[in-house]
Amino acid sequence: MSDAVNAAPTAPRVSASNPLAEAWRTLRRRPDTVIAAAVLLFFAVMAAFPGLFTSTSPRTCPIREARTTPQGWGGDHPLGTDALGCDVLATLVHGVRPSLLLAVVVVGVSLLIGVTLGLLAGFYLGWVDYLVSRTVEVFLVIPLLLAALLVLSLFKGVDLGAGTFNVILLPAVVLILFGWMPYARYVRASTLEAKNLDYVTAARSLGASDLRVMVRHVLPNAIGTVTALLPTSVAGVISAEAVLSFLGIGVRPPATSWGIQIEQGSQWVLGGAPHILLAPLACLVATVLALVVLGDALRDALDPRLAA
């Protein structure tokens, strides 16, 4: 018998309306959510229209102006210049698109692969689980750099073009290849938990197909743990891309990205030009925090138990 400790918060409520409308009302009541949304919107606009934010080209890099300290708004280089004399603001603004696109593509595709495999493994167990689990372990063991080199040699000399999407293709492939495992593991674990719940059994006793049970009943209640993983994965992807660009399979010059900037800037932190690092790092941190807040809010809003 539960007592007041559990019983207290479940006062019956009378409001009953469209869950989406209710989700939106909940979102609005949380100011942190609004700020987070504004931050993301800001970067999205920046990615779509870099010209709005800077008129300087990130490719004009007079070496004599290298490591200029930030001059503030109105100056030639509001955020200073980097080690090669390129304008930090311009690089930053033009780096948004490949960085965010890469993050979204990598996280999205990894999630899709991971969730599907994890769900199948957890639901059917047996040989499906054996296959998926061993594959996950194999991929976890292979070092990322080794695999990156392999992919690099495979694609050597292949011209991928210079469109934004082509520019991120190689790092995306490598990062997806080595990024889906945590999702698969988490989803498998929560599927194991969710599939024995009474309401899943209830659906099966009604004669629901496996697909229906998985999609309607197991997945919605198993996905929660994974969504918590997403915002930090975005940060992980952006910084991993920087490492890859060292090997020449990152975002290819002349295109630029936050990852590359952070990588380069980190060498000058103690060399008298911390701004080269701090500017892109601040953007990355802001993006990740915004995603964390928004992710939390979205999860709460979509959970009818928490929608208040």
Partner: peptide, 9 residues
């Protein structure tokens, strides 16, 4: 008491 009666609390 029943649930919510405060007996455990």
């Amino acid at each position: 008491g029943e649930s919510g009666s405060g007996k455990s609390v």
